[in-house]
Nucleic acid binder design. Sequence first.
DNA 1: AGTTATGGCGCC
DNA 2: AAAGGGCGCCATAACT
Length: 561
Amino acid sequence: MQSRIALVPDPHGPGGRLQRLGEQGAALGPVLPAADLAAAVGELEAAEQPRWVWATADSAYAPLLPRLPRRLGRCHDLRLVESLLLAHDGQWGAARSLGAAWARLRGLPVPADLGEAATEAQDSLFAPDRLQLPPGTDPLAAVVAVHAEQQRRLAAIEGEPERARLRLLVAAESAGALTAVEIAADGLPWRAEVHDAMLTELLGPRPHVPGTQPARLAELSVRLQQALGGRPFNPDSHAQVLKAFADQGIRLGSTRTWELRTVDHPAAELMIRYKELSRIHAAHGWAWQDAWARGGRFRPEYVVGGVVSGRWASRGGGALQIPRLLRRAVLADPGWRLVVADAAQLEPRVLAALSQDAALARSAAGGDLYQALAATAFQGDRGKAKLGLLGAMYGQTSGDIGPLLATLRQRYPTAMGYLEAAARTGEEGGIVRSRLGRTCPPPSDAWLDLTEGSGDGEQGPRSARARGRFTRNFVIQASASDWALALLAALRRRLAGLPGRPHLVFFQHDEVLVHTPAELADQVVAAVTESATEATTLVFGPTPVQFPMSTAVVECYADAK
DNA sequence: AGTTATGGCGCC
DNA sequence: AAAGGGCGCCATAACT
């Protein structure tokens, strides 16, 4: 039986307190004070690899990490688990902090979760942490009690394998918390000089005065003005752009790029170019570099479980939206490599495994799922196969997709039935869960008001169908997240077993980057492959569906695939 | 002056 | 007639 140890750092200084726990969470033995918490934790980790129990990885692991001799293997993150359990129980309004969970347990007034506005206060040494404990509460006692309560709630989950799956989700989500802290500490290798050269080539030299427009944007602005009659206007203002085009007799419904592409006028092309460049300047220009990519590393702030589907979100820095163009600036250190790995066609494979559609599973048993699908059902037209399947998973009905959906329904009734059942549940106001038990939010009160009594006409009310699309996609996206988290946890563990400290530096829904000494790259690739197999077995059990990873060993991120 | 909404687009 | 899921972030516009 694996040991568990509760861990609480002192608010100031390097010390902290520890408490051994039984599997159900009962405190075993005395509270152990540690003058040097990192040293104590390091020794215990080396001796017995316990599961560390803490309020949040940010508060307990992040400060410890720089002083630990090696990374920790496992944890139980109370805040993330509270979130999973509350959602599973349909309690979406409830606060998730340690303090909130403790207050619920004790029948005390429950503190609201701090908004993101409170983040800046963390910089202050004396700012309160975000645990939200009532004054005078012993944080270690709260950690122990809330953990025991969570173990009790997990044990009370009805049904097997549901209970075991939710426990797996708890472990995987917690491993995600470890990973996010470590990625933040390590950072993604980022060559500012490469980034800078790209910006200079695209936009002109960096303006000396911050806030002024780079030369290339200013030029485009002037040329646009000339092309549209010479009257000055702000190309960043949708209203003014629409008016400027209208004055030339061109009526636009929007300033979207795809619409501009249909316009046969020199200004349209200039406008498209202006938008491309101004976006790069605004979103990933010099200001972004100064704020997020200093010292040779891009350090994003990930928010584990930040999306209801279990995907990570990010806060500041746009970690999950780095333009492909800028991957040129992501370069391994000298003597190191990047192993870039992404799960190929993850979502349709998830659909095949979830629905157990035998025919779809056959298409998902090999390399290119869409090609296999095309060969069976679409006369070899891979594009149609992909469009149709993605449309089915998103609930798309527009365009020329109707015939494709009809073909899919005919050939893969089990898989399509699975999606339609999920959509129906959503339309009727029900909830759905991912493979491991992550739960979607219920309809809002406004939604219930809107849909109540409006009858079930041919198509149902618009918002009901929108919710159907949400639940239809949720089962896929959230189960894909389950799988990706399991992959991440498995990979993290395997990397820890390699010498030379290869480490994860990026995670984006279905893609991972590992920064590794060059001579270990092959072993890292093998670890990725093994981890995918392990994740598949853990999440889906025995299944004919394969989840292949496409991997590349590169020095530059842009050179992958 | 500060907050919220909107349009638009980057990523999956 | 049209009807694609999930995010974060920017600038502008519209508010309080």
